[in-house]
Simulated assay, not measured.
Amino acid sequence: MVDLDYLDDLDGEDLTLEIVRLAKTEGAKVALRSAMELCADKKAPAQARASAQRAVLQLAGLLDRRDRGSDLPRDLHEMNGEELREELARLSERTRAVRARHKRRPDDVFD
């Protein structure tokens, strides 16, 4: 089990970003493991198995986003010009915020 006590020290965007990171890493591993076990469990109710199977296929990208009814952002190659400009602005702002929180030293090797 993952210790989440350190989340109490975060707030705002830092907390949101950490929750998303955890969901995409630890949460995804736990969810996939659980879904795969449920898919293989012959004693599980058919509806539960079907739901788990669909979740695995979605995670693998084998079902169309429209099928999912998902709010996930579209891939860059699916965006029009305006959507690309909005995504660039969002990422630029996020980069500025991260840099402001983690000011580099002048002698940083990555400068």
Rank of each mutant, 00 (worst) to 15 (best):
M36C: 07
L63K: 04
R65W: 03
V98S: 14
F110H: 12
R105M: 11
K103G: 14
K24L: 12
E83D: 13
L91Y: 09
K103S: 10
R90W: 01
G27R: 00
D75F: 14
A89T: 06
V56D: 01
A97W: 04
A35V: 02
L38H: 00
Q47G: 09
R54N: 08
A100H: 09
R54A: 10
R90G: 05
L72E: 15
V56L: 09
D8W: 00
R65D: 08
A23C: 12
L38Q: 07
T95I: 14
D5P: 03
Q47A: 14
L72T: 09
G12W: 01
L7R: 08
A35Q: 01
L84A: 13
E37M: 15
D107R: 12
E83A: 08
D111Q: 11
V20P: 04
G69H: 07
D64L: 03
E37R: 15
D75P: 00
T25S: 15
D111R: 10
D107A: 14
L76P: 00
D8T: 10
H77W: 13
Q47S: 09
A48Y: 05
A89L: 08
R66Q: 15
D111K: 07
A31V: 08
R104F: 04
P106D: 09
R104H: 08
F110T: 13
A60I: 04
R54L: 11
D41K: 03
G61Q: 04
T95N: 09
D71H: 10
A23F: 04
R74G: 08
K103I: 11
Y6D: 14
E26V: 15
A46L: 13
S34D: 15
I19N: 01
R90V: 01
V20T: 12
L72V: 07
R96C: 00
R74Q: 04
S34V: 12
Q58T: 10
A55N: 08
A60Y: 01
S51T: 11
L91N: 05
A44M: 01
R66M: 09
D3P: 04
T16C: 06
R49L: 02
P106A: 05
D3C: 12
L84G: 02
Q58V: 07
K24M: 12
N80T: 05
E18N: 07
G81L: 06
L76C: 03
I19T: 07
L57N: 06
E37P: 02
S51H: 06
L7W: 05
F110M: 13
T95S: 13
K42S: 14
K42P: 15
Q58M: 05
M36E: 13
A23P: 00
I19H: 02
A60E: 09
A23D: 11
L88H: 06
L57H: 07
R66N: 10
L7A: 11
G61I: 06
Q47H: 05
A50F: 10
R90F: 10
E93P: 00
A35D: 08
S92M: 03
A60Q: 07
S51D: 13
E83P: 00
L17W: 02
D14H: 09
A52R: 00
S70K: 00
G69F: 06
M1F: 03
A100T: 11
